[in-house]
Nucleic acid binder design. Sequence first.
DNA 1: AAAAAGTTCAACCGCCGTCTG
DNA 2: GCAGACGGCGGTTGAACTTTT
Length: 349
Amino acid sequence: MGRSPCREEISGVKKGPWTPEEDEMLIDYISKHGHGSWRTLPKRAGLNRCGKSCRLRWTNYLRPDIKRGQFTEEDERIIINLHSVLGNKWSKIAAHLPGRTDNEIKNYWNTHIRKKLLKMGIDPETHKPRTDLNHLMSLSQLLGMSNLSSVMSTTWGSNPLGLQPDITQLTKIQLLQNLLQLMNSNSVVNMGNPYLLGNLNLNPLFLNGTNPLQTKEPVVLSGSQGFANPSVYSQVQSECSQQDATKSLTDVEGGSIPKGPDYNKISSTNHSRENQAENPLPALVAASPRMGTFNPMNSGCDNLAQTCTESPSNTFFDDWEKLLDDETSGSYWKEILDFTSTSSTPIMW
DNA sequence: AAAAAGTTCAACCGCCGTCTG
DNA sequence: GCAGACGGCGGTTGAACTTTT
């Protein structure tokens, strides 16, 4: 089934960048006759290109309704939200951004958004905090360096590595966040084996249900629970395709579709979303123009989109600081921070 | 100023689903 | 039901451009 028409039948056909003359010929032909069959178009238009190349050039560049220029924050927000639901369905995402092409969005995602999310410690595939070992190692190494630099600065009265206290703090927070994410998934997968928690002396966090990150009971999924009720997810998808993107996503993430097992079913049905079902933490997708305003203090994180929109100044780091200052939960966090900051070697899991 | 490294994005490639004879 | 034609999609490439060393 299927074939690549551009290859076999057309040797000697031109490839590579389009010239202004070719563009003009294509525009001229399509504006007069429409594109009709792409396969026969090049011949009819007098172009030495394959039909596929013409179609691509037209849909991605020459179409009159193409919107050029920078993506706005709103565009970015929509893309991230849609990506969290649809994954790499660039054409579906593009359908929600009039004038933007799938190719453009894909490129923008890969060159800008993806890097931004990675920098923030968010896995761009799952939209969750990264828990991969490399990332944790690099963070803990950075921490180690910052600790070393503070030792050196006390000793020598300067900071030869140029690491500011803020960086140290941010790194700790980042590491902590990932740590918790990792423990959280472990607490689901290995409920009967709190080895990791025991090692870190953190049992009270989850075993007695007082995890200050979650005011709701952790969602414990067993086997099939995390997987698929396709009808629920297709409902979401059809909502996405029928309604305004922002609204439908607010519904999905914000609560009109019930949370708990069903919510996890929705997420897990999508490709590469399986691990979300194992993880009770909410998605880290911010629906506000400021990305990454993951709010661990929000009650239950029930309505991320709403929360983030309503309090755009409330950043992730603000919340963490509040959390750390809070007397009731502070001791646990201090314990963790003590652990991370006194640990002279990278944490080995 | 020059070379190297990094980034961007238009274009290509190959696979897939649907249509048609 | 089968096979080819076709359009569409997502992943990848590589030239051009920019930034860093």
